[in-house]
């Protein structure tokens, strides 16, 4: 399945590297990255492919989201379909 990782937080070196490393560690392939720094606020959207194993996905999501929180980052991992449903007709 494809998932969207969104990361928002105060800009500092290594946020992209950290997220990418976490993905690589679990064999998650990154398909697309968009990132911007606006007035010191770092925003990144990553589209990734996640293996279809529900337990692995849940573990990855929980770990990434909670480790983000510890570092003052808001990280969300969500199924791609939710965005398609909400923002596209058809």
């Amino acid at each position: 399945m494809r998932a969207v990782i969104s990361v928002i937080g105060k800009d500092r070196p290594g946020i992209l590297a950290y997220t990418a490393t976490e993905c690589a560690r679990r064999n998650i392939n990154i398909e697309d990255v968009t990132q911007k720094v606006l007035e010191d606020i770092f925003t990144m959207i990553m589209i990734v492919t996640i293996p279809d194993n529900a337990d692995e996905y849940h573990a990855f999501k929980n770990e990434l989201e909670s480790s983000g929180e510890e570092q003052g980052l808001k990280i969300h991992v969500m199924h791609e379909d939710i965005f398609n449903a909400m923002h596209r007709i058809g």
Binding site: I8, N84, H87
Partner: peptide
Amino acid sequence: MRSNYILETVR
């Protein structure tokens, strides 16, 4: 997909 849509949903 446009990132502002994604950020809107997250917000």
